[in-house]
């Protein structure tokens, strides 16, 4: 049984729930709005973002847009007022960048300080449940990582990646909020890199290029989650009572070079030191927006264990990593790929 009973009281309504979503324009935010629109247990959806997501124009009945810019200094008061006035019982905080940016100062204001504002607003308005979106990249790619990191593993981030470390700091704020407000259910979903035909993020942009750098002699295992699985997991987290961090991962792992081969990309082997210098130069000249520190994820394994989400959240990925990759590139399974079964026949 997936639903867990939590010790604290649940003042949340069973019917007619009201959900507020920050970062509604992201893939996950938009998909969550779609799913909440279709679920009759939810009465109202507050869409908080700087611009209205396209789905609102398509005609929604429950969703209402409120322009909120998380980087504004007193926005926490505005959000708190809104949460109280609309009697929001669930806050979904998904306003995070899916790709590094050169505007690192702004990114810090948006992710780290923005999370502070959301948490302050939650502390003032007291919703019953807070769901936050995070990433398994926050564990960091380190040579001493075990093959599967579970939720108890430390979030070590990366020593000089602001993109990753802002997310680690946001998670720490959520954890502190959960400690200080034990009556509020706080769940954090750490998504493995999300791939899919429609989502646009760091990984889909990286893998959309014809060539991809390979750290010569290194071939870590990689893990992805399909965009539909990810959206389903987020919906389950909003429905559920489970608290704490959850790794949301797909089925199976593959070595990085096999991922590239399955996608039909051309690997460019580079020694790590050379690759880092090139990446730094490209980053400094703003030719690419992929931060050099992310090369560590091509050196060392950063794979998470999703069994806690299966146990407590009732989420099990429905797509294997192979299907996820093939769905991403739009190929059918017979399309030139080898198969274990046929090779041993």
């Amino acid at each position: 049984m997936a639903t867990v009973s939590v010790g604290n009281a649940r003042p949340r309504r069973a019917q007619g729930r009201v959900v507020a979503i920050t970062g509604a324009c992201t893939y996950l935010g938009t998909e969550l709005i779609k799913r909440l629109e279709e679920d009759r247990r939810y009465a109202k959806v507050l869409v908080l973002d700087v611009k209205a997501p396209a789905i609102l124009a398509a005609g929604t009945t429950k969703a209402r847009f409120f322009p909120i810019d998380l980087t504004q200094p007193t926005i926490d008061g505005d959000i708190a007022t809104l949460l109280q006035r609309e009697q929001v019982d669930t806050v979904v905080h998904g306003a995070f960048l899916s790709h590094p940016t050169h505007a690192t100062e702004w990114a810090h204001e948006f992710e780290d300080v923005g999370t502070m504002h959301v948490m302050n607003a939650c502390a003032a308005a007291g919703p019953a449940r807070v769901v936050m979106v995070s990433t398994t990249m926050a564990y960091g790619a380190h040579p001493e990582n075990p093959n599967f990191l579970d939720e108890r593993a430390e979030l070590r981030g990366h020593q000089d990646s602001r993109f990753i470390n802002d997310k680690v700091r946001a998670e720490k704020q959520a954890a502190r909020f959960a400690r200080e407000h034990p009556h509020v259910q706080v769940a954090t979903l750490r998504f493995a890199p999300i791939l899919g035909p429609t989502i646009n993020n760091l990984h889909t942009r990286f893998f959309s290029r014809v060539t991809a750098p390979v750290m010569a002699g290194h071939d870590p295992l990689m893990q992805f989650v399909h965009e539909q699985d990810a959206a389903w997991a987020l919906k389950r987290a909003v429905d559920s009572d489970a608290v704490g961090p959850f790794n949301i991962v797909g089925k199976g792992v593959l070595p990085y070079t096999t991922v590239l081969a399955l996608m039909g990309r051309v690997p460019v082997p580079l020694p790590f030191l050379l690759a880092r210098s090139i990446a730094k130069a490209l980053w400094a000249t703003q030719i690419v927006s992929t931060a050099p520190s992310l090369l560590d994820y091509l050196l060392y394994v950063c794979v998470a264990d999703g069994s806690r989400a299966t146990r407590d959240l009732g989420f099990t990925a429905r797509f294997s990593i192979k299907r996820t990759i093939l769905d991403f590139v739009g190929a059918s399974p017979e399309d030139g790929a080898t198969d274990v079964a046929s090779s041993f026949a």
Binding site: G252, L254, P255, L262, K322, D339
Partner: peptide
Amino acid sequence: MRGRADMV
């Protein structure tokens, strides 16, 4: 994909 499996 020669010499490598699509499942490990």
